[in-house]
Design a protein around this nucleic acid. Structure first.
Lengths: 225, 225
DNA sequence: CGCGCCATTGACACGAGTCAAGACGCGTGG
DNA sequence: CCACGCGTCTTGACTCGTGTCAATGGCGCG
Protein backbone atom coordinates (compact mmCIF):
# COMPACT_ATOMS: atom_id res chain seq x y z
CA UNK A 1 0.00 0.00 0.00
CA UNK A 2 1.05 3.59 -0.74
CA UNK A 3 3.55 2.05 -3.07
CA UNK A 4 3.94 2.70 -6.74
CA UNK A 5 2.79 -0.17 -8.89
CA UNK A 6 4.70 0.99 -11.93
CA UNK A 7 8.45 1.35 -12.10
CA UNK A 8 11.08 1.97 -14.68
CA UNK A 9 11.27 -1.80 -15.18
CA UNK A 10 8.32 -1.20 -17.43
CA UNK A 11 10.67 0.29 -19.99
CA UNK A 12 13.70 -1.87 -19.47
CA UNK A 13 11.52 -4.97 -19.78
CA UNK A 14 9.35 -3.99 -22.70
CA UNK A 15 11.36 -1.77 -25.00
CA UNK A 16 13.40 -3.04 -27.90
CA UNK A 17 17.07 -2.08 -28.02
CA UNK A 18 16.23 0.43 -30.71
CA UNK A 19 13.48 1.97 -28.62
CA UNK A 20 15.75 2.06 -25.60
CA UNK A 21 18.27 3.99 -27.61
CA UNK A 22 15.64 6.50 -28.60
CA UNK A 23 14.50 6.58 -24.98
CA UNK A 24 17.95 7.78 -24.03
CA UNK A 25 17.71 10.58 -26.52
CA UNK A 26 14.18 11.76 -25.83
CA UNK A 27 14.33 11.82 -22.07
CA UNK A 28 16.00 14.38 -19.85
CA UNK A 29 17.63 14.12 -16.46
CA UNK A 30 16.55 16.78 -13.96
CA UNK A 31 18.03 17.59 -10.59
CA UNK A 32 15.62 19.11 -8.12
CA UNK A 33 15.69 20.11 -4.47
CA UNK A 34 13.76 18.90 -1.48
CA UNK A 35 10.32 20.50 -1.20
CA UNK A 36 10.17 21.42 -4.84
CA UNK A 37 6.96 20.64 -6.69
CA UNK A 38 7.43 18.42 -9.72
CA UNK A 39 3.91 19.17 -10.89
CA UNK A 40 0.73 20.37 -9.27
CA UNK A 41 -3.00 19.99 -9.48
CA UNK A 42 -4.63 21.30 -12.62
CA UNK A 43 -1.30 21.76 -14.31
CA UNK A 44 -0.82 20.73 -17.91
CA UNK A 45 0.89 17.37 -18.31
CA UNK A 46 3.87 17.85 -20.58
CA UNK A 47 5.17 14.45 -19.64
CA UNK A 48 5.85 12.07 -16.81
CA UNK A 49 8.75 11.24 -14.54
CA UNK A 50 10.93 8.46 -13.25
CA UNK A 51 12.54 8.99 -9.88
CA UNK A 52 16.20 8.09 -10.43
CA UNK A 53 17.28 9.15 -6.95
CA UNK A 54 15.43 10.49 -3.95
CA UNK A 55 11.89 10.33 -2.67
CA UNK A 56 8.64 12.07 -3.47
CA UNK A 57 5.10 12.25 -2.20
CA UNK A 58 2.01 12.37 -4.37
CA UNK A 59 -1.00 14.09 -2.89
CA UNK A 60 -4.31 15.67 -3.63
CA UNK A 61 -5.66 18.81 -2.01
CA UNK A 62 -9.25 18.64 -0.76
CA UNK A 63 -11.84 21.37 -1.02
CA UNK A 64 -10.76 22.81 2.32
CA UNK A 65 -7.07 22.95 1.46
CA UNK A 66 -6.04 19.91 3.45
CA UNK A 67 -3.74 17.55 1.62
CA UNK A 68 -4.14 13.80 1.39
CA UNK A 69 -1.04 11.80 0.48
CA UNK A 70 -1.89 8.70 -1.52
CA UNK A 71 1.50 7.51 -2.68
CA UNK A 72 5.16 7.65 -1.80
CA UNK A 73 7.62 7.29 -4.62
CA UNK A 74 11.04 5.70 -4.30
CA UNK A 75 13.92 5.18 -6.64
CA UNK A 76 12.72 3.70 -9.89
CA UNK A 77 9.07 4.69 -9.60
CA UNK A 78 7.18 6.12 -12.54
CA UNK A 79 4.66 8.84 -11.76
CA UNK A 80 2.65 11.64 -13.30
CA UNK A 81 1.62 9.63 -16.32
CA UNK A 82 -2.15 9.46 -15.80
CA UNK A 83 -2.99 12.78 -17.43
CA UNK A 84 -0.73 11.89 -20.33
CA UNK A 85 -2.82 8.79 -20.96
CA UNK A 86 -6.22 10.42 -20.76
CA UNK A 87 -5.21 13.85 -21.99
CA UNK A 88 -6.37 15.86 -19.01
CA UNK A 89 -4.86 18.08 -16.36
CA UNK A 90 -3.00 16.71 -13.34
CA UNK A 91 -5.50 15.60 -10.70
CA UNK A 92 -2.74 15.55 -8.08
CA UNK A 93 0.55 17.13 -7.05
CA UNK A 94 4.05 15.77 -6.57
CA UNK A 95 6.56 17.15 -4.10
CA UNK A 96 10.07 15.98 -3.39
CA UNK A 97 10.90 14.76 0.10
CA UNK A 98 14.63 14.82 -0.60
CA UNK A 99 16.98 16.32 -3.13
CA UNK A 100 16.27 14.13 -6.12
CA UNK A 101 17.17 13.22 -9.63
CA UNK A 102 14.37 12.79 -12.11
CA UNK A 103 14.06 11.50 -15.62
CA UNK A 104 11.57 13.45 -17.64
CA UNK A 105 9.67 11.59 -20.38
CA UNK A 106 7.83 13.88 -22.80
CA UNK A 107 4.14 13.09 -23.23
CA UNK A 108 4.33 12.74 -26.99
CA UNK A 109 7.19 10.30 -26.74
CA UNK A 110 5.45 8.13 -24.16
CA UNK A 111 2.34 8.00 -26.31
CA UNK A 112 4.39 7.18 -29.36
CA UNK A 113 6.05 4.30 -27.52
CA UNK A 114 2.72 2.97 -26.31
CA UNK A 115 1.23 3.16 -29.77
CA UNK A 116 4.06 1.28 -31.37
CA UNK A 117 4.78 -1.21 -28.62
CA UNK A 118 1.92 -3.38 -27.54
CA UNK A 119 3.92 -5.16 -24.85
CA UNK A 120 4.45 -1.84 -23.16
CA UNK A 121 0.72 -1.16 -23.34
CA UNK A 122 -0.14 -4.48 -21.79
CA UNK A 123 2.39 -4.02 -19.02
CA UNK A 124 0.99 -0.58 -18.36
CA UNK A 125 -2.54 -1.96 -18.17
CA UNK A 126 -1.36 -4.52 -15.70
CA UNK A 127 0.36 -1.89 -13.60
CA UNK A 128 -2.68 0.36 -13.58
CA UNK A 129 -4.84 -2.54 -12.46
CA UNK A 130 -2.53 -3.25 -9.58
CA UNK A 131 -2.62 0.40 -8.69
CA UNK A 132 -6.39 0.09 -8.66
CA UNK A 133 -6.16 -2.72 -6.12
CA UNK A 134 -3.96 -0.60 -3.94
CA UNK A 135 -6.43 2.24 -4.05
CA UNK A 136 -9.26 -0.01 -3.04
CA UNK A 137 -7.32 -1.01 0.05
CA UNK A 138 -6.44 2.57 0.86
CA UNK A 139 -9.96 3.82 0.44
CA UNK A 140 -11.48 1.03 2.50
CA UNK A 141 -8.91 1.60 5.20
CA UNK A 142 -9.55 5.33 5.37
CA UNK A 143 -13.29 4.86 5.42
CA UNK A 144 -13.45 2.11 8.01
CA UNK A 145 -10.49 1.97 10.33
CA UNK A 146 -9.84 4.08 13.40
CA UNK A 147 -6.96 6.52 13.42
CA UNK A 148 -4.94 4.20 15.61
CA UNK A 149 -5.39 1.33 13.17
CA UNK A 150 -4.64 3.58 10.23
CA UNK A 151 -1.41 4.78 11.81
CA UNK A 152 -0.33 1.21 12.46
CA UNK A 153 -1.26 0.21 8.92
CA UNK A 154 0.66 3.08 7.41
CA UNK A 155 3.72 2.50 9.56
CA UNK A 156 3.64 -1.14 8.70
CA UNK A 157 3.50 -0.56 4.98
CA UNK A 158 6.20 2.06 5.17
CA UNK A 159 8.51 -0.81 5.99
CA UNK A 160 8.79 -1.43 2.29
CA UNK A 161 10.05 2.09 1.69
CA UNK A 162 12.42 2.60 4.52
CA UNK A 163 13.97 -0.65 5.54
CA UNK A 164 17.61 0.17 6.04
CA UNK A 165 19.66 -2.84 6.98
CA UNK A 166 17.83 -5.87 8.26
CA UNK A 167 15.46 -5.39 11.12
CA UNK A 168 15.27 -1.75 11.99
CA UNK A 169 13.08 0.50 9.96
CA UNK A 170 13.45 4.21 10.37
CA UNK A 171 10.92 6.61 8.97
CA UNK A 172 12.07 10.14 8.26
CA UNK A 173 8.71 11.64 7.30
CA UNK A 174 7.54 14.72 9.17
CA UNK A 175 4.58 14.43 11.53
CA UNK A 176 2.53 16.50 9.14
CA UNK A 177 3.28 14.16 6.24
CA UNK A 178 2.50 11.10 8.29
CA UNK A 179 -0.78 12.67 9.36
CA UNK A 180 -1.60 13.38 5.72
CA UNK A 181 -0.92 9.76 4.90
CA UNK A 182 -3.19 8.53 7.68
CA UNK A 183 -5.98 10.96 7.00
CA UNK A 184 -5.76 12.69 10.35
CA UNK A 185 -4.18 15.76 11.94
CA UNK A 186 -0.73 16.22 13.40
CA UNK A 187 -1.85 16.34 17.03
CA UNK A 188 -3.86 13.14 16.89
CA UNK A 189 -1.04 11.38 15.10
CA UNK A 190 1.43 12.45 17.76
CA UNK A 191 -0.80 11.07 20.48
CA UNK A 192 -1.07 7.71 18.76
CA UNK A 193 2.70 7.61 18.30
CA UNK A 194 3.07 8.44 21.99
CA UNK A 195 0.93 5.44 22.91
CA UNK A 196 2.77 3.13 20.55
CA UNK A 197 5.99 4.28 22.16
CA UNK A 198 4.69 3.39 25.61
CA UNK A 199 3.72 -0.01 24.25
CA UNK A 200 7.30 -0.56 23.06
CA UNK A 201 6.20 -0.92 19.46
CA UNK A 202 8.10 2.06 18.17
CA UNK A 203 10.69 4.49 19.46
CA UNK A 204 11.88 7.90 18.46
CA UNK A 205 15.57 8.48 18.68
CA UNK A 206 16.53 11.92 17.56
CA UNK A 207 14.79 15.20 18.07
CA UNK A 208 13.58 15.34 14.50
CA UNK A 209 11.11 12.69 15.41
CA UNK A 210 12.45 9.92 13.20
CA UNK A 211 10.53 6.77 14.04
CA UNK A 212 12.10 3.38 14.66
CA UNK A 213 9.92 0.32 14.36
CA UNK A 214 10.71 -2.06 17.21
CA UNK A 215 8.00 -4.68 16.87
CA UNK A 216 6.78 -4.97 13.32
CA UNK A 217 4.69 -8.04 14.04
CA UNK A 218 2.73 -6.40 16.80
CA UNK A 219 2.29 -3.41 14.54
CA UNK A 220 0.87 -5.59 11.82
CA UNK A 221 -1.55 -7.18 14.24
CA UNK A 222 -2.80 -3.80 15.42
CA UNK A 223 -3.16 -2.70 11.83
CA UNK A 224 -5.34 -5.63 10.85
CA UNK A 225 -7.96 -5.26 13.54
CA UNK B 1 -17.64 10.20 -8.95
CA UNK B 2 -18.72 6.64 -8.18
CA UNK B 3 -19.24 6.33 -11.90
CA UNK B 4 -17.65 3.84 -14.23
CA UNK B 5 -15.06 5.40 -16.48
CA UNK B 6 -15.14 2.56 -18.96
CA UNK B 7 -18.18 1.54 -20.94
CA UNK B 8 -19.02 -0.74 -23.79
CA UNK B 9 -18.28 2.18 -26.14
CA UNK B 10 -14.72 1.02 -25.69
CA UNK B 11 -15.48 -1.93 -27.94
CA UNK B 12 -17.89 -0.34 -30.35
CA UNK B 13 -15.42 2.48 -30.95
CA UNK B 14 -12.20 0.54 -31.17
CA UNK B 15 -12.95 -2.85 -32.68
CA UNK B 16 -12.82 -3.59 -36.38
CA UNK B 17 -15.92 -5.07 -38.02
CA UNK B 18 -14.19 -8.41 -38.03
CA UNK B 19 -13.34 -8.19 -34.35
CA UNK B 20 -16.87 -7.13 -33.56
CA UNK B 21 -18.17 -10.21 -35.30
CA UNK B 22 -15.90 -12.36 -33.23
CA UNK B 23 -16.95 -10.42 -30.15
CA UNK B 24 -20.51 -11.53 -30.81
CA UNK B 25 -19.42 -15.13 -30.90
CA UNK B 26 -17.11 -15.18 -27.91
CA UNK B 27 -19.31 -13.32 -25.46
CA UNK B 28 -22.33 -14.66 -23.61
CA UNK B 29 -25.47 -12.97 -22.37
CA UNK B 30 -26.41 -13.77 -18.78
CA UNK B 31 -29.60 -12.98 -16.95
CA UNK B 32 -29.24 -12.61 -13.21
CA UNK B 33 -31.46 -11.63 -10.32
CA UNK B 34 -31.29 -8.75 -7.87
CA UNK B 35 -28.92 -9.38 -5.00
CA UNK B 36 -26.94 -12.01 -6.85
CA UNK B 37 -23.18 -11.75 -6.72
CA UNK B 38 -21.53 -11.49 -10.12
CA UNK B 39 -18.12 -12.13 -8.58
CA UNK B 40 -16.61 -11.78 -5.16
CA UNK B 41 -13.37 -10.95 -3.44
CA UNK B 42 -10.53 -13.39 -3.97
CA UNK B 43 -12.41 -15.19 -6.68
CA UNK B 44 -10.65 -16.23 -9.87
CA UNK B 45 -11.28 -13.87 -12.77
CA UNK B 46 -12.55 -15.92 -15.68
CA UNK B 47 -13.56 -12.80 -17.50
CA UNK B 48 -15.28 -9.46 -17.19
CA UNK B 49 -18.76 -8.08 -17.69
CA UNK B 50 -20.78 -5.45 -19.45
CA UNK B 51 -24.04 -4.46 -17.82
CA UNK B 52 -26.59 -4.58 -20.65
CA UNK B 53 -29.56 -3.86 -18.41
CA UNK B 54 -29.92 -3.18 -14.70
CA UNK B 55 -27.68 -1.81 -12.00
CA UNK B 56 -24.86 -3.14 -9.86
CA UNK B 57 -22.70 -2.07 -6.98
CA UNK B 58 -18.99 -2.74 -6.68
CA UNK B 59 -17.63 -2.94 -3.17
CA UNK B 60 -14.78 -4.10 -1.03
CA UNK B 61 -15.06 -5.70 2.37
CA UNK B 62 -12.78 -4.33 5.07
CA UNK B 63 -10.97 -6.33 7.70
CA UNK B 64 -13.92 -6.04 10.07
CA UNK B 65 -16.50 -7.19 7.56
CA UNK B 66 -17.94 -3.79 6.77
CA UNK B 67 -18.42 -3.11 3.09
CA UNK B 68 -17.34 0.00 1.23
CA UNK B 69 -19.06 0.71 -2.08
CA UNK B 70 -16.75 2.47 -4.51
CA UNK B 71 -18.68 2.30 -7.74
CA UNK B 72 -22.20 2.02 -9.09
CA UNK B 73 -22.61 0.48 -12.49
CA UNK B 74 -25.33 1.43 -14.96
CA UNK B 75 -26.31 0.19 -18.37
CA UNK B 76 -23.30 -0.03 -20.62
CA UNK B 77 -20.63 -0.10 -17.94
CA UNK B 78 -17.71 -2.49 -18.11
CA UNK B 79 -16.53 -3.96 -14.83
CA UNK B 80 -14.52 -6.78 -13.33
CA UNK B 81 -11.65 -6.45 -15.78
CA UNK B 82 -8.82 -5.42 -13.46
CA UNK B 83 -7.81 -8.91 -12.40
CA UNK B 84 -7.91 -10.00 -16.02
CA UNK B 85 -5.35 -7.35 -16.85
CA UNK B 86 -2.95 -8.06 -14.03
CA UNK B 87 -3.68 -11.74 -13.66
CA UNK B 88 -4.70 -11.73 -10.03
CA UNK B 89 -7.77 -12.52 -7.97
CA UNK B 90 -10.70 -10.14 -7.67
CA UNK B 91 -9.92 -7.44 -5.11
CA UNK B 92 -13.61 -6.52 -4.91
CA UNK B 93 -17.13 -7.89 -5.22
CA UNK B 94 -20.03 -7.08 -7.53
CA UNK B 95 -23.67 -7.41 -6.54
CA UNK B 96 -26.76 -6.64 -8.61
CA UNK B 97 -29.12 -3.97 -7.36
CA UNK B 98 -31.81 -5.01 -9.84
CA UNK B 99 -32.60 -7.94 -12.05
CA UNK B 100 -30.01 -7.50 -14.76
CA UNK B 101 -28.67 -8.66 -18.05
CA UNK B 102 -24.95 -9.10 -18.37
CA UNK B 103 -22.56 -9.73 -21.20
CA UNK B 104 -19.72 -12.00 -20.19
CA UNK B 105 -16.36 -11.51 -21.90
CA UNK B 106 -13.91 -14.37 -21.34
CA UNK B 107 -10.53 -13.29 -20.01
CA UNK B 108 -8.56 -14.95 -22.77
CA UNK B 109 -10.62 -13.25 -25.43
CA UNK B 110 -10.25 -9.81 -23.87
CA UNK B 111 -6.50 -10.28 -23.64
CA UNK B 112 -6.36 -11.45 -27.22
CA UNK B 113 -8.24 -8.37 -28.37
CA UNK B 114 -5.94 -6.09 -26.39
CA UNK B 115 -2.86 -7.75 -27.79
CA UNK B 116 -3.99 -7.44 -31.36
CA UNK B 117 -5.66 -4.05 -31.19
CA UNK B 118 -3.55 -1.18 -30.01
CA UNK B 119 -6.38 1.34 -30.23
CA UNK B 120 -8.27 -0.71 -27.71
CA UNK B 121 -5.24 -0.74 -25.44
CA UNK B 122 -4.84 2.99 -25.61
CA UNK B 123 -8.51 3.59 -24.93
CA UNK B 124 -8.30 1.26 -21.98
CA UNK B 125 -5.28 3.10 -20.61
CA UNK B 126 -7.18 6.33 -20.92
CA UNK B 127 -10.18 4.86 -19.14
CA UNK B 128 -8.07 3.50 -16.31
CA UNK B 129 -6.44 6.88 -15.87
CA UNK B 130 -9.80 8.56 -15.59
CA UNK B 131 -10.82 5.94 -13.09
CA UNK B 132 -7.69 6.86 -11.16
CA UNK B 133 -8.81 10.48 -11.02
CA UNK B 134 -12.15 9.42 -9.69
CA UNK B 135 -10.53 7.37 -6.97
CA UNK B 136 -8.40 10.27 -5.89
CA UNK B 137 -11.52 12.35 -5.40
CA UNK B 138 -13.27 9.59 -3.53
CA UNK B 139 -10.37 8.91 -1.25
CA UNK B 140 -9.80 12.56 -0.47
CA UNK B 141 -13.46 13.03 0.22
CA UNK B 142 -13.67 10.07 2.57
CA UNK B 143 -10.55 11.12 4.41
CA UNK B 144 -11.37 14.78 4.83
CA UNK B 145 -15.06 15.61 4.69
CA UNK B 146 -17.61 15.25 7.45
CA UNK B 147 -20.39 12.73 7.11
CA UNK B 148 -22.86 15.46 6.27
CA UNK B 149 -20.67 16.71 3.46
CA UNK B 150 -20.06 13.21 2.21
CA UNK B 151 -23.77 12.46 2.10
CA UNK B 152 -24.38 15.64 0.13
CA UNK B 153 -21.54 14.82 -2.21
CA UNK B 154 -22.77 11.31 -2.83
CA UNK B 155 -26.37 12.39 -3.37
CA UNK B 156 -25.20 15.05 -5.74
CA UNK B 157 -23.15 12.68 -7.85
CA UNK B 158 -25.92 10.12 -7.86
CA UNK B 159 -27.77 12.59 -10.05
CA UNK B 160 -25.88 11.18 -12.96
CA UNK B 161 -27.17 7.70 -12.26
CA UNK B 162 -30.77 8.32 -11.41
CA UNK B 163 -32.06 11.32 -13.23
CA UNK B 164 -35.47 10.26 -14.47
CA UNK B 165 -37.21 12.96 -16.44
CA UNK B 166 -35.88 16.47 -16.21
CA UNK B 167 -35.52 17.91 -12.76
CA UNK B 168 -36.46 15.31 -10.23
CA UNK B 169 -33.92 12.74 -9.25
CA UNK B 170 -35.08 9.77 -7.28
CA UNK B 171 -32.64 7.45 -5.61
CA UNK B 172 -33.78 3.90 -4.93
CA UNK B 173 -30.76 2.71 -2.98
CA UNK B 174 -31.32 1.26 0.47
CA UNK B 175 -30.15 3.19 3.50
CA UNK B 176 -27.51 0.55 4.10
CA UNK B 177 -26.14 0.93 0.57
CA UNK B 178 -26.10 4.70 0.83
CA UNK B 179 -24.28 4.45 4.11
CA UNK B 180 -21.72 2.13 2.53
CA UNK B 181 -21.20 4.66 -0.23
CA UNK B 182 -20.69 7.48 2.24
CA UNK B 183 -18.42 5.55 4.55
CA UNK B 184 -20.73 5.76 7.54
CA UNK B 185 -23.42 3.70 9.29
CA UNK B 186 -27.11 3.48 8.60
CA UNK B 187 -28.21 5.42 11.68
CA UNK B 188 -25.95 8.38 11.06
CA UNK B 189 -26.99 8.49 7.43
CA UNK B 190 -30.65 8.52 8.39
CA UNK B 191 -30.09 11.44 10.72
CA UNK B 192 -28.37 13.46 8.02
CA UNK B 193 -31.19 12.70 5.60
CA UNK B 194 -33.63 13.80 8.26
CA UNK B 195 -31.89 17.15 8.55
CA UNK B 196 -31.72 17.61 4.78
CA UNK B 197 -35.44 16.93 4.67
CA UNK B 198 -36.09 19.64 7.22
CA UNK B 199 -33.99 21.98 5.13
CA UNK B 200 -36.17 21.27 2.11
CA UNK B 201 -33.24 19.92 0.13
CA UNK B 202 -34.60 16.42 -0.28
CA UNK B 203 -37.83 14.61 0.40
CA UNK B 204 -38.84 10.99 0.81
CA UNK B 205 -42.10 10.04 -0.76
CA UNK B 206 -42.85 6.40 -0.29
CA UNK B 207 -42.27 4.19 2.67
CA UNK B 208 -39.34 2.46 1.02
CA UNK B 209 -37.33 5.56 1.64
CA UNK B 210 -36.78 6.55 -1.97
CA UNK B 211 -35.11 9.94 -1.96
CA UNK B 212 -36.16 12.85 -4.13
CA UNK B 213 -33.71 15.66 -4.68
CA UNK B 214 -35.50 18.98 -4.45
CA UNK B 215 -32.66 21.47 -4.49
CA UNK B 216 -29.65 20.12 -6.32
CA UNK B 217 -27.81 23.43 -6.26
CA UNK B 218 -28.00 23.76 -2.52
CA UNK B 219 -26.92 20.16 -2.26
CA UNK B 220 -23.90 20.87 -4.40
CA UNK B 221 -22.97 23.82 -2.24
CA UNK B 222 -23.16 21.76 0.92
CA UNK B 223 -21.08 19.06 -0.72
CA UNK B 224 -18.30 21.41 -1.67
CA UNK B 225 -17.66 22.90 1.74
C1' DC C 1 22.28 34.50 21.09
C1' DG C 2 17.77 34.57 19.46
C1' DC C 3 14.45 33.50 16.08
C1' DG C 4 11.60 30.07 14.00
C1' DC C 5 10.15 25.60 12.78
C1' DC C 6 8.59 21.33 14.39
C1' DA C 7 7.14 18.17 17.89
C1' DT C 8 4.51 17.64 21.99
C1' DT C 9 1.00 18.21 25.48
C1' DG C 10 -3.35 19.91 27.65
C1' DA C 11 -8.15 21.31 27.77
C1' DC C 12 -12.24 21.15 25.55
C1' DA C 13 -16.21 20.44 22.43
C1' DC C 14 -18.56 18.01 19.20
C1' DG C 15 -19.26 14.66 15.56
C1' DA C 16 -20.30 10.18 14.86
C1' DG C 17 -20.59 5.25 16.27
C1' DT C 18 -23.02 1.78 19.32
C1' DC C 19 -26.82 -0.19 21.51
C1' DA C 20 -31.56 -0.58 22.05
C1' DA C 21 -36.24 0.14 21.04
C1' DG C 22 -40.03 1.44 18.24
C1' DA C 23 -42.55 2.44 13.70
C1' DC C 24 -43.87 1.19 9.36
C1' DG C 25 -45.02 -1.44 5.31
C1' DC C 26 -45.06 -5.71 2.91
C1' DG C 27 -45.72 -10.43 2.07
C1' DT C 28 -47.31 -14.88 3.68
C1' DG C 29 -50.46 -17.97 5.38
C1' DG C 30 -54.44 -19.06 7.95
C1' DC D 1 -59.69 -10.61 4.36
C1' DC D 2 -57.13 -10.13 8.39
C1' DA D 3 -53.17 -11.15 11.40
C1' DC D 4 -48.77 -12.17 12.13
C1' DG D 5 -43.83 -11.85 11.26
C1' DC D 6 -39.97 -10.12 9.02
C1' DG D 7 -37.10 -6.61 7.11
C1' DT D 8 -36.18 -1.88 6.67
C1' DC D 9 -36.34 2.69 8.28
C1' DT D 10 -36.34 5.80 12.18
C1' DT D 11 -35.46 7.70 16.65
C1' DG D 12 -33.42 8.15 21.35
C1' DA D 13 -29.78 7.94 24.79
C1' DC D 14 -25.19 7.49 25.62
C1' DT D 15 -20.13 7.16 25.04
C1' DC D 16 -15.90 7.98 23.10
C1' DG D 17 -12.79 9.04 19.47
C1' DT D 18 -10.95 12.89 17.12
C1' DG D 19 -10.53 17.56 15.69
C1' DT D 20 -9.70 22.41 17.32
C1' DC D 21 -7.41 25.84 19.84
C1' DA D 22 -3.78 27.28 22.61
C1' DA D 23 0.55 26.97 24.97
C1' DT D 24 5.03 24.94 25.85
C1' DG D 25 9.42 22.66 24.77
C1' DG D 26 13.30 21.44 22.03
C1' DC D 27 16.71 21.87 18.40
C1' DG D 28 18.89 23.87 14.45
C1' DC D 29 20.13 27.66 11.80
C1' DG D 30 21.32 32.27 10.85
Amino acid sequence: MFNSAITQDLFTDCLTPKELAQFEIETTVLKMKKRQLVFSENGIAFGCYILLQGKAKLFKTGDLGKTQIFQLCCKGDLFGFHPVLNNRKYPDSAELLEDSELLFIPAAFLLQLLKSNNDLCMAMLSGLSTEFEDFLCQETMLAQKSVRERVCTVLYYLTAHYKNGNIEVSIPLSRADLADLCGTVKETLVRVLHDLKEEQIISTTDARGTILLLDVNKLKRLAEV
